Simulated scan of single mutants.
Amino acid sequence: MILSRLPAPRAIRRARLAIASVVLASAALLAPAGALAQGMSSDPTLAQTLFEEGRRLMEAKAYAEACPKLAESQRLRPGTGTLLNLALCNEALGRTATAWGQFKEALFASKKEGNAAREAFAQEHINALEPRLSKIVLKAEGTPGLLVRVDGHDIPAAALGTPIPIDPGAHEVEATASGYSVWSTTVQVGESADLKTIAVPKLQPAPPAQTAAAPSGPAAGVAGSAGSAGSAGSAGGGGGEGLRTAGFVIGGAGAAVLGVGAVFGILAAGQASDAEKDPALCPGKQCTPLGRKEIDAAETKALVSTIGIGVGVAAIGAGAILVLTSGRPRAEGASAAGAKPGAPGRVHARVVPLLGPEGGGVSVLGAF
């Protein structure tokens, strides 16, 4: 066996630097709650606690309570052992397709880790589940821009016409396309080896929007005056509306990228640290080829984290500048032109970036 000297763990240093950057960015962007949530959700102690509680509930055959705890433990700190237990839990609940997919994922992870016992265990359950899998086949007519969803999840166009494993029970199928009416149906899937075919018809064009008739008489004069004032407001504030919208879009995208960077930083730190401490991978700080691969993979995640955080912070800053420099909202301009302070329709709002363990976003705070 060839051993290589474990260098200064660059992946750990990069990951820690990335996470520190997230904390600093959170403080600068008024998101202390996000920083607090991040510290909680990345806590390995919480993941272990949820895992042990999930195992205890499984032993008591309380599978409906156990599965969510195991799923959250896996989200907080992914591991092949936790994934196998989650698959067993879903299998016990009769969620055959979900369990089959999780056993498949655990099988690939076990092969990568070189764990023959877990690999054999996962394969055994896969072989037992496959003959029992129920499936649906979605067939759709040629509606331009058609999007098909099952239980709110998008189905790629390439998957149409292909048998898709699905858990037994009732499922909602919906088809939409721009300019067309929505079509939906409910399908009941049997418990074992059931096959349901759902034919999505060609969607019907959506009816044209109803336009309100213009009022006549004195009321029409009032409406006309209001319309003129609205036009004047648009002429003066159209550019501001565009800047404000662009600021929301850019800031929201930046927050999402920042969240992805934070997640990769946490994963990198955990993977590199685990490899360094594992006597089978890096005994006495001397890494085996497999240990070296783990360190290299962690360094890649750390690099992605650093880039994501930098891009995210820049985008959030640019979005905030656009919002702050876009001028007063249209409703506020109308109030200044004649409406009384506090009258209905006046809007006061500000944008607050939010950072958290599962990503980021933009929140609008104010009175409407």
Rank of each mutant, 00 (worst) to 15 (best):
T98E: 10
T82K: 04
I12Y: 10
A158T: 14
F368I: 05
A255N: 05
T325I: 04
S231F: 10
I198W: 04
A220N: 11
A177G: 01
L6F: 04
Q286M: 14
P329E: 05
P44N: 04
N115W: 13
L322A: 13
A223E: 15
A272F: 06
I295G: 02
R75K: 15
I12K: 10
Q123P: 07
K340N: 12
Q210W: 13
I316A: 00
T176E: 07
A66W: 02
G238S: 13
M40W: 14
A213Y: 15
Q102M: 11
V222I: 14
A298I: 03
A109N: 07
T143M: 01
S21F: 12
A157L: 12
A339D: 11
L107S: 08
F108I: 12
V352P: 00
L322K: 07
G190N: 10
G227N: 12
L258Y: 09
W100E: 01
T162L: 15
G179M: 09
S192H: 14
A71V: 09
K340V: 10
M40I: 11
G259Q: 03
R56N: 06
S181P: 02
P283H: 08
Q286W: 07
E124C: 07
S110L: 06
A109T: 08
V200I: 15
G79P: 02
A15E: 03
P208C: 07
R10K: 12
P283Q: 12
P168Q: 02
E119M: 13
S228Q: 15
R77V: 15
A298M: 07
P207C: 03
G284Q: 10
T211A: 15
K104I: 00
A177D: 03
P32I: 09
C287E: 03
L88W: 02
S326R: 03
K340Q: 15
K111Y: 08
G360S: 10
T96M: 01
N85A: 15
Q123G: 07
P7A: 02
A214W: 15
G101H: 13
I295W: 02
A229M: 14
I198R: 00
A31C: 14
G239M: 05
E91L: 05
S225I: 09
R10S: 05
P215D: 07
R56V: 07
S273C: 06
L17A: 13
L281K: 02
V137F: 09
P32D: 11
E141C: 04
A206E: 14
A272G: 12
E241H: 04
V351M: 13
L50D: 02
C89K: 00
A128G: 07
S228M: 14
A212L: 15
G114H: 09
N90M: 08
A320Q: 12
G239N: 08
A128T: 06
G142I: 04
E65P: 05
S178C: 06
T176M: 06
